[in-house]
């Protein structure tokens, strides 16, 4: 039985998705300010790490890391509407890449499971 990460296409799928996803996020004025930094390359790498995790791939994320990493953003007003906007872009990215619906559902479930930690709830 292959894992979600294998079924979705592994690292190649992450590489294909990261530019599309990050482009959507940066083009969305309601959330782009959370993602715009002087170091776009590092930010791009972070999006890649996030997608790897959401795709069920190897990662070292812990809830505590998620919480700590997003705390400065929560202080700047990050809330559920922003979280949902990002999730929407993730879903649209996967649809654009013709990922089967059942796999998209699994990815969205993993992404959704980070919500409390991301928003510091």
């Amino acid at each position: 039985m292959s894992t979600l990460f294998e079924k979705i296409g592994g690292e190649g799928a992450v590489d294909a998705a990261v530019d599309i996803f990050y482009r959507k996020v940066l083009s969305d004025d309601s959330i782009s300010h959370f993602f715009e930094t002087t170091d776009m390359e590092a930010q791009h790498a972070k999006q890649k790490a996030f997608l790897t995790m959401a795709f069920g791939g190897p990662n070292n994320y812990t809830g505590a890391d998620m919480r700590a990493a997003h705390a400065p953003l929560v202080a700047k007003g990050l809330n559920e509407s922003h979280f949902n906007a990002v999730a929407g872009h993730l879903q649209a990215t996967l649809e654009e890449l013709n990922v089967p619906a059942d796999l998209i559902a699994e990815v969205m479930a993993i992404a959704g499971s980070t919500k409390d930690d991301v928003l510091g709830l």
Binding site: V18, D19, Y22, R23, L26, S27, E36, T38, M40, E41, H44
Partner: peptide
């Protein structure tokens, strides 16, 4: 100039260039 590089990097990425 850092400002030019930063803005151009973003615009180029949004215009379809891969990071």
């Amino acid at each position: 100039a850092p400002e030019m590089v930063k803005t151009m990097r973003k615009n180029a990425f949004l215009a379809g260039a891969s990071m």
